[in-house]
Nucleic acid binder design. Structure first.
Length: 181
DNA sequence: CGACCGATTGACT
DNA sequence: GTCAATCGGTCGG
């Protein structure tokens, strides 16, 4: 069932861990796709690597909205990355979804990606496969019919903590969380 | 206004 | 392993 608003009212790191094993669902253009969340990364307000570090701007404004909203940003001129906004309004924190395991609508993912491999194993890839774009910025995950997260229960396993990758600024804190299948 | 650069990816050595 | 692609946000003049 769909995760309720209360889920997002916890600490950012706790949410980053709790999102593992949950299912991200999008219904864009009537095409339903579902992916199991396999890897996340936490971005905190006092973190030099976070977009929110230097305060609110036009770009990162969704990060400062209430918990449970979407933050989608455009990066490197060609990719978009999907985040779940956390913490209270006016505190810019979020959890980046890095890796999904395709579960439903795989044909739609292949159609959007134009290839059959590597559909969701990276933050820029999963947004393409799931049909996520900047138009979803500020959308509430507990209310939208286009994008939401489901808890299908049953996940049990070890959470692996590791250093974040692909960033130049900031300490290599253990803010990256993943599970195996 | 111009210059720089990024929470990435894919192609290539 | 290396590196170019590509463009909106941000910052300095």
């Amino acid at each position: 069932m769909r995760i309720k608003k209360e889920f997002y009212r916890k600490g950012t790191i706790e949410i980053a861990k709790d999102l593992l094993g949950k299912y991200l669902v999008t219904i864009i253009d009537g095409k339903k796709t579902v992916g199991k969340i396999m890897e996340t990364e936490a971005y905190l307000h006092d973190d030099p690597a976070s977009h929110s570090f230097k305060g609110k701007t036009k770009r990162n404004e969704p990060m400062f909205m209430e918990a449970g909203k979407c933050y989608v940003y455009f990066i490197y001129g060609m990719y978009e990355c999907f985040n779940v906004v956390t913490n209270k309004e006016n505190i810019g924190e979020a959890v980046l979804i890095r890796v999904l395991k395709p579960v439903e609508g795989i044909d739609f993912m292949i159609e959007r990606r134009g290839k059959e491999k590597d559909l969701c194993n990276g933050p820029g890839k999963l947004t393409i496969s799931m049909g996520i774009s900047r138009g979803l910025n500020g959308v509430d995950l507990s209310e939208s019919d286009e994008i939401f997260i489901e808890d299908r229960g049953k996940f049990k396993g070890n959470i692996i903590e590791s250093k974040r990758i692909g960033i130049s600024k900031g300490a290599n804190l253990d803010l990256r969380f993943s599970i195996t299948d």
